[in-house]
Amino acid sequence: MKWKAVRNLRLCTKDCLCLYVCPVGATDTEDSIIDVDKCTGCGDCAAACPSKAISMIPAEMPLPQEKKDEVLTGMRALLEAKSRERLLASALSEEGPDGKRRLMRALEKSFRLSGEDIAREAGFMLPQQEESLNLLESILDNPPQGFPEDSARAILSSFRKGDR
């Protein structure tokens, strides 16, 4: 498996040992984000970092486990349910006294987070997986008015370049 290094800036204490060990200078960037085009995946920086701020992630994500149709049906019904709750809480957060607005804003966020988590288990775990890209393509076949088509195409070409 091929790997690439990523840095967690929350943990980075700027000891800069990665800078000294990297054979290609991939960690020497202005914004502290490791340059994925330069990184060869050797792992020296991760091993050298005293703060354990660098980890190696797969250059190509392994495919998620396959899902049974019944599970997809159940989770997608749940996804729709979370969506309705979220939209209703969102509408309610725009009216009434301060406490109610805060509660409804919290619930909107809560329902959204649950819904996103459910979406992962409804067959759309990774942004580069086939199901996600096929969905974008099927929307592009007959896009609703105002749909950001250029962005959808850019995602497709970015992930379909064999970089799955």
């Binding site: 994500m61 729709e80 979220r86 939209l87 979406a119 409804a122 759309f124 974008l136 950001p148 962005s151």
Partner: peptide, 30 residues
């Protein structure tokens, strides 16, 4: 549309976690 919105915002979060800010922005736009 509401379900698609949740689905795509989650894919945007997935891009963020894989350090793919450009794809993250585009998925979020969708």
């Amino acid at each position: 549309s509401g379900a698609l919105s949740l689905l795509f915002s989650n894919l945007a979060r997935g891009c963020e976690k894989q350090y793919r800010p450009h794809e993250q922005k585009m998925y979020q736009e969708i």
